[in-house]
């Protein structure tokens, strides 16, 4: 969220001096971790653990991009008035589609490997 009591000039100063390179190195490390997690732990973890771990890493990366690079950290509340309804609608769409998954006889989180013959 935006820092309070700053003039436009001060906000611009803060924005232009954000720790972008630190964020870049963090993103790089997370990408390598994600690749290694999928490459070396695939088959050793349950499907749910694999999906959960990878999604945590991906969402962390997406958050860093949004928070620092898209300047959500510095923006005012107005931007959340646009984003929150959109995200809510997105959740509703996926929730609306969920019965198609939940009522399926295979169940989404059953590992595809269990079907091995």
């Amino acid at each position: 969220m935006a820092e309070h009591n700053l003039t436009a000039e001060q906000e611009r100063f803060v924005e232009s001096h954000a720790p972008y390179m630190k964020v870049f190195w963090t993103l790089l490390i997370l990408t390598v971790l994600e690749y290694a997690y999928a490459r070396f732990l695939e088959g050793r973890l349950s499907f749910a653990a694999l999906v959960g771990g990878l999604m945590v890493l991906a969402i962390t990366k997406a958050f860093l991009v949004g928070w620092f690079f898209m300047h959500l950290k510095f923006e005012g509340r107005w931007v959340y008035m646009l984003l929150v309804p959109a995200c809510l609608l997105a959740v509703i769409v996926v929730t609306g589609l969920a019965p198609d998954m939940a009522f399926h006889e295979n169940g989404f989180f059953e590992s595809p490997a269990v079907a091995d013959r």
Binding site: A2, R12, F74, G76, W78, L82
Partner: peptide
């Protein structure tokens, strides 16, 4: 008193 509390809000940005 500061006149702006956040980066400038422009029509393009919205």
């Amino acid at each position: 008193r500061p006149t702006v509390q956040a980066p400038p809000l422009t029509p393009g940005k919205v």
